[in-house]
């Protein structure tokens, strides 16, 4: 459902993403791994059409992101990295706004909000202004916004960032469940998350894909059989890259 071909992005002379290609089908949950600055967020932004690629193409559900930007955005639910929202609005009015933006009206809107609130466990904070919420709730509010129109494709940029262990577990379970009939890409730094929720993982380092396979396959490639050791063996940390 998501097809990325030779995607590249340069910011001035810096090549943030360099010839990335992969595919994600329905029912797949793709974990996007990589050190900071590897190009994960940039790749996701290009898939959602937030920034145009310097070269290469992305198609979502058979539609090119550059040629049919509106049609594509309709099919995508996107949780950006910092979980932005209108901080002065209450959770309920923010979700109403998000649903209306997705063209939902009347009963359709009500049931969509009910479903999103239930999935993200927001029942107790509906009337609260978003800037009075804790980071975890704020993140979940933004996640609810991404799920509200029941999209076929979900792009989640660090969905578990800033959540406590219980909430992390809930979000992972949610991703795994939804992954059964959607195409999901999510990025993370937490390696056990990949094992818990993904059907496939891609490791990206300095803009290039350095590994692509199921979590089991990747683990098997490490001498110690641990995903973390494998990750460390094929990516370089920021400081090392700087010195080189």
């Amino acid at each position: 459902m998501i097809k990325v071909e030779n995607l590249s992005k340069s910011f001035g002379s810096k090549r943030a993403v360099d010839g990335v290609s992969f595919e994600v089908g329905k029912g797949e949950v793709l974990g996007f791994l990589g050190p900071n600055g590897a190009g994960k967020s940039t790749t996701m932004r290009m898939i959602t059409g937030f920034v145009p690629p310097s070269a290469g193409s992305v198609s979502v559900c058979g539609l090119d992101v550059q040629e049919n930007p509106i049609e594509v955005k309709r099919r995508i639910g996107y949780l950006p990295e910092a979980a932005p929202s209108y901080t002065e609005m209450s959770v309920l009015s923010f979700l109403k706004f998000a649903a209306e933006m997705r063209g939902l009206r009347g009963e359709g809107r009500r049931s969509a909000i009910r479903r999103a609130v239930e999935l993200c466990h927001l029942e107790n904070v509906l009337g609260q202004a978003i800037d009075t919420l804790s980071k975890g709730f704020r993140h979940r509010t933004c996640l609810a916004q991404a799920l509200i129109h029941d999209p076929e494709v979900l792009i989640l940029d660090e969905p578990t960032d800033g959540l406590d262990p219980n909430q992390k577990h809930e979000v992972r379970t949610l991703i795994r469940e939804m992954g059964e009939n959607k195409a999901i890409i999510f990025s993370t730094h937490i390696l056990e998350e990949v094992e818990a929720a993904c059907t496939r993982a891609i490791i990206i380092d300095r803009g290039r894909i350095v590994a692509n396979g199921t979590p089991q396959e990747l683990k098997a490639r490490a001498a110690t059989g641990k995903l973390e050791d494998f990750f460390r063996s094929i990516t370089r940390s920021d400081t090392v890259a700087e010195a080189a």
Binding site: Y86, E88, M89, S93, F97, E100, M101, G103
Partner: peptide, 22 residues
């Protein structure tokens, strides 16, 4: 039609934002 609906939604939200505070 859909884009007018979206414009209306955004305008409504932006206007309402003024009345959230004094």
């Amino acid at each position: 039609r859909a884009s007018w609906a979206v414009i209306r939604t955004i305008a409504k939200r932006e206007l309402a934002a003024y009345f959230e505070s004094p």
